[in-house]
Structures are given as structure tokens and as C-alpha cells.
Design a protein around this nucleic acid. Structure first.
Ligand SMILES: [Mn+2]
Ligand SMILES: [Mn+2]
Ligand SMILES: [Zn+2]
Ligand SMILES: [Zn+2]
Lengths: 151, 151
DNA sequence: CGAATAAACGCAACACAGTTGCATTCCATG
DNA sequence: CATGGAATGCAACTGTGTTGCGTTTATTCG
């Protein structure tokens, strides 16, 4: 058996592909994000890591999430309570090129196949960095049952 | 001169019309909300009240804002940073009919005269509550000088 | 492989937004 | 006016996210 090295963290290739160091913390967080059914808050991710016997320091988790978002491997959105929620970015999907639907109840972000909106002209001195069509309401899951937030 | 009573708080009629006690605190907050050019955060409202020589306790302001929102006299929304912003609910004026520009530096929100985006079709079970064209970048003031946040 | 280096990690302390409990004050009603 | 219930102010608290700094670890290179 080749037993290649001692252990390679999951998602090492994806991490290095975007210029990030392939650390165990980032691998575990990406695992949690990919296994999640809904966008997860910092606290939820922290709890799932602890439940999986790989607890992570609070601050480290904040920094890991920030690095993943900056690198484009995760999405960050604020839910109706003002709490940030994170989800795995689909590999290969450029998130500037389509609209997103945001569930006001669970904070979930769903990619839609809609064309990018045409940017209107701005007042003098304003510089445009991006434009997104922000659709919001309730997603199928939250509309179904009486609602309530994910674990 | 009739000098009617000692002083009637502003917006007394509007407050009583929605079943709220007409208190000075609520009147002053409504004044600030109506004078505001953009949705204001709790801290901004607090500062403007203090600047107008009618400071209000932090907690009281939270409760006043909550009562105004519940009664329908104010609107509450969370901005991209996860901070709640409040605005006067202008009777009749539809605030959803235009696009907004959000300054990534100072957090300011500016109303633009842009046509409402056409909503695309959604997956099954999704319910649309609203759609906004979210433009972001740097505003004229933050682009000018080296930046910095508003007071 | 082993050393060097820069990034990432863990811990403590901090900052900011929002909430809760309770005693005091004030608006509305009669 | 008197009165009762709602609103206010103050203190303490919680939740979420940030900063500083010493230690550890992933990567590079000899
Ligand atoms: Mn997307
Ligand atoms: Mn507007
Ligand atoms: Zn939902
Ligand atoms: Zn600005």
C-alpha cells in the first residue's frame, strides 16, 4: 500500500488552486460547508466541527471563512437577523454572472440562471464595483413547513 | 397668542393614529427619520438626537424604533454589513420602485433613478417578496478624499 | 531530507450591536 | 387632578465579530 505521506487534508487541490495554503482547518471547514444543506452561520459551523471531533478556535474559524470567501471558495450573505451565513461556492461558477435569490427566513442563497442586470449611469464621482440583482423572499423549504431556522 | 398647552410633541397625531402613545422620544425620532436622506443606523440616529440637544437613552431608542416599526411608521432593513437601518415609512411613497447604490467604504445608501428590474422566473416553491438592483462601489465623497466613514 | 520563512493558528482581550430586568417617570383616561 | 399602565433611564448582560501577539505549521529551497 502506497500510504501516501501521513495525511493530505481534504480539498488541498482546490485550496492551492486558488492560491491558499492547504491547511487542515480550511479542509475541515470546506467539508462542513459542502455537507451543509443550508447556509450556515459561524456558530453553526463551529458546532459541527466540534461535533465531528475536530474543534476549531472561534477566531481561526472567522479567519478561515474570510479567506475562503476572499478566494471565492465560499459565499457570505447576511440573513434577516443580521447574522452572516456561509455556503460553499459551486466550483467553476462565476458568481458575478448571474442573479441570486436570498431566502429571508433561512438566509440561504440560491443561484439563478438570470442574465446580469444592465448597470445604469451613476451620479458624478461614483465608481461602480459591481451590480447584482438581489431577489428575496422565501425558499421552497422554508415555505413548505411552518418555517423555523436550520439547526 | 393661543399658546396651546405647553408643548405638543411632533407627530402626535400620526402616533395616536396607529395606536401609540405620543411621547416626546417617539416624536423626536420620527423627526430625525423624516429629515434623514438615507436609512439611518441606530448609532446615527442616536448621534443626531444628541446633536439636536435632545439626547435619548440607547435602550430607549432601540425600543422606540421597535415600536415605530411594529406600528408601521418606520422601516427596518439590514444592510450588507449586518447592521440594521431605519427609515420613515412615507405614506404612499413606494420605496421599492428604484435601485440603490451602496458605498462599500462608508456604508451609505443612495437612491437612484433606475428602472425596476424585471423579475425572472423562480424554481418551484419559491416565493418572491421583492427584487432590488444592488449597485455597489464607492460614493463621490469616499472616492474624493482618502475615504473615511461618516460621522 | 532538513532548515528557513511566511502564513496560519490559538489564546486573551477588546469592540460593537442589541437585549433584559427593574425602579422611576410620564401619557392617557376619567 | 388622581390613577394605572405604558414608556423611559440605568445597569448589567449576551451575541457576533475583531485585534494583537506569541507559537505552530505549510511550503520552498538547499
Ligand atoms: Mn451564484
Ligand atoms: Mn430608496
Ligand atoms: Zn429558506
Ligand atoms: Zn461612501
Amino acid at each position: 500500500m502506497p500510504a501516501k505521506s501521513v495525511s493530505t487534508p481534504p480539498f488541498s487541490a482546490a485550496l492551492r488552486a486558488v492560491g491558499l495554503k492547504a491547511t487542515v482547518a480550511r479542509g475541515r471547514v470546506l467539508e462542513v460547508l459542502h455537507a451543509a444543506l443550508q447556509p450556515a452561520s459561524h456558530g453553526e459551523i463551529e458546532a459541527r466541527l466540534a461535533a465531528a471531533a475536530s474543534p476549531l478556535d472561534r477566531v481561526t474559524l472567522y479567519r478561515v471563512l474570510d479567506s475562503l470567501v476572499t478566494a471565492g471558495l465560499a459565499l457570505k450573505a447576511v440573513d434577516a437577523r443580521g447574522v452572516f451565513r456561509f455556503s460553499a461556492a459551486q466550483t467553476g461558477v462565476a458568481h458575478q454572472r448571474h442573479a441570486h435569490f436570498r431566502c429571508e427566513d433561512c438566509g440561504g442563497v440560491f443561484c439563478l440562471d438570470a442574465p446580469p442586470p444592465a448597470a445604469p449611469s451613476l451620479p458624478d464621482g461614483f465608481r461602480l464595483h459591481g451590480a447584482e440583482l438581489d431577489l428575496h423572499g422565501t425558499c421552497a423549504r422554508c415555505g413548505d413547513a411552518g418555517g423555523g431556522h436550520p439547526a
